[in-house]
Each structure stands twice: as C-alpha cells, then as structure tokens.
Design a binder for these strands. Sequence first.
DNA 1: TTAAGTGCAAATATTTTGCTGTCAC
DNA 2: GTGACAGCAAAATATTTGCACTTAA
Lengths: 158, 158
Amino acid sequence: MLQEQTDLGPGKLLPPGYLQDQLVARGVRLTRQRRVILRVIEDARRHLDAATILRFAQKEDETIDRVTVYRTLNLLKRHGLIDELDLLHLSGGSHYYEQRPPRQHMHLACLRCGQVEEFASPLFDKIKGQIQRERGFRVAFARVEIGGYCQKCAGNQA
Amino acid sequence: MLQEQTDLGPGKLLPPGYLQDQLVARGVRLTRQRRVILRVIEDARRHLDAATILRFAQKEDETIDRVTVYRTLNLLKRHGLIDELDLLHLSGGSHYYEQRPPRQHMHLACLRCGQVEEFASPLFDKIKGQIQRERGFRVAFARVEIGGYCQKCAGNQA
DNA sequence: TTAAGTGCAAATATTTTGCTGTCAC
DNA sequence: GTGACAGCAAAATATTTGCACTTAA
C-alpha cells in the first residue's frame, strides 16, 4: 500500500465544502453519511481507494457501510465531481478517487517507491485541440497515468 | 479467425510472432497453451479483456484454463510486452490488454458508443521531455485514456 | 531429468444489487 | 408525507493461490 502520508496530495485548489455545495446545487439529498464521505475525499492528502475512504469515514461514524461508500462514489462520478483512477495498479486492483481538479493534470507514479506526483502542461491542451480537429472527437475528460522513476529513486539506482 | 468485428484494432506495427520471439529470447518456456494465448493477443483487432482472450483461446484448445490466461498475462506484463488498460470501464470492471506498441499512443473512448480509437502525437513526446527535465522523473511508459464523443456520436446529438 | 507450467478447486478482492426500514426535505 | 437513501445480506465479477500432475527444454 502507498504510505498513509505522502508529501504531495491531490492538488487542493477548490474551496472547502465544494463537493457538498455542488450536490446541493444539483438538488441531491445530503445525508449524514454523505457529508462524512465527502469530507474524507476533500481532506484527502493523497489518492484514496474505496476501502480507505470507508476506513476514514468509519473513524467518524462507525455505522457507515461499505456499500454507501460505493454508492456515493458512483453518485459523484455520475455528476462528474470526482475522477476514478487506476494509478497503474501499483498497489492492488482497486481504483483511486480524486476530486475533479479545475485543471487536468497527469499522474506520475513511481514504479519503485509507489509515490504519485501530479503534473500539468499546457501542451496537453494542445493535444486535446489536435484530437478535436483531426478526429472530430469531442474530448470530455482525460486520464493520464505515467509510470517511471521519481527523482529520488532514479538517482538511487540508475 | 478473430472476427468480432470492430473498427480500428490496436495498431499492428510489430512482426507476427514477436511476443513468442521475445519470450524465447528471454529464456521463458513456451508451452502449447502460451503459444495459443500469444497468438490471440497478437491477432486481436481490438483490445481484449482476460475473459475474451480465454474465449478465443478455447476455440483453439478447449482445455485451456482461465488461470493460465491470467498467469500468461502477468508474465507478459512483468516482461513489459503488453500494457494493461482500463478503457475507462465503459464496459465493465475488467482490464484490457494490448501488445506494447513501439510508439506510445492514446486511447479515445467514446462515452456513447463505447468505441475506442487510438491517437498518437509528437507533442506527447515533448511532454515526456518536460516531465523529465522539470521533475527529474524518468518516464518508463504512459497510459492515456480520454473520454468524450466520437465524430459520429458527437454529430448525432449536438 | 527436473524446474517450470498446467488445471482444478478454492480463496480473495472488489463492486453491485435486492430488499426493508429510515430519514432529509 | 414521501421518495430518495442507508444498512444488511447476498450476488456478481475479477483475479490470485495452493497443490498434485504434466511437460518443455
């Protein structure tokens, strides 16, 4: 498993309570359980999988069920408020979730230490334009997962 | 023989028998079952998941087991000869596999019809250079999955 | 010959669904 | 009050592991 505390977490560029506010604005009912789960996702300092979200949520409310976590994640996905990632399955078969960021970024996953950094580049927007023009494909969202060796690990071995 | 007709399949830019040759070159034992599975992957005209690979393989040899497919896929992954993809889970929770292409490309998955196209851009190599320079992150491979609407579907609903 | 691979059964892991009672609005 | 939601149990789906037999090199 990835370390519990990593340095870089998913970028925190959105106001606190954003997920709640968005759901309310869309007329979705806010339950006690959802509030807790949303808070866990917003406060995350790294990408969490469903099982970890459950664990954190249960610290605050023991009765929250695994199923409720999955249903809430699906709800957020349907509303386009979070993104589902694989992070290259560096630590098992489950998915990871992050609040959809205002600006698309890429994930750099270190094959050695498992740390995940984020990276954004204006060139990627150019690529999207290219796709649109050359293929007539209307891009809704993008997921970029890059495997390799982080500065520290690359230095230590190669 | 692999006629489950789709549009674009994974690009066929590698010589036939490439996977076999690579495994032999690496001193891996070639069994009857592995030969069949490798052939299925090489002949694929689209991205296949484990269950589909099994189905095709069993057409040729009924006795091949699901487990052998998974073990062979893991073998190929370990040797970096195939890539594992999600294709955004447009059609279930399983993974899809493609022979690792000589040139990285992106996957464009249509959220409406589920069709998957491939797209390559020299700009993406520039981004990799950027990552290397700005972060000291040594890129080994990349996976890009883009969701949106293909030309046909975008036209039909816009 | 013999280490590696296979099939089978079973375990594990992850996510979804059906149902009934409960709660947010 | 009522329709959406939660919890529980169970199913569905996806993948891995243990073990005894088989086979490629």
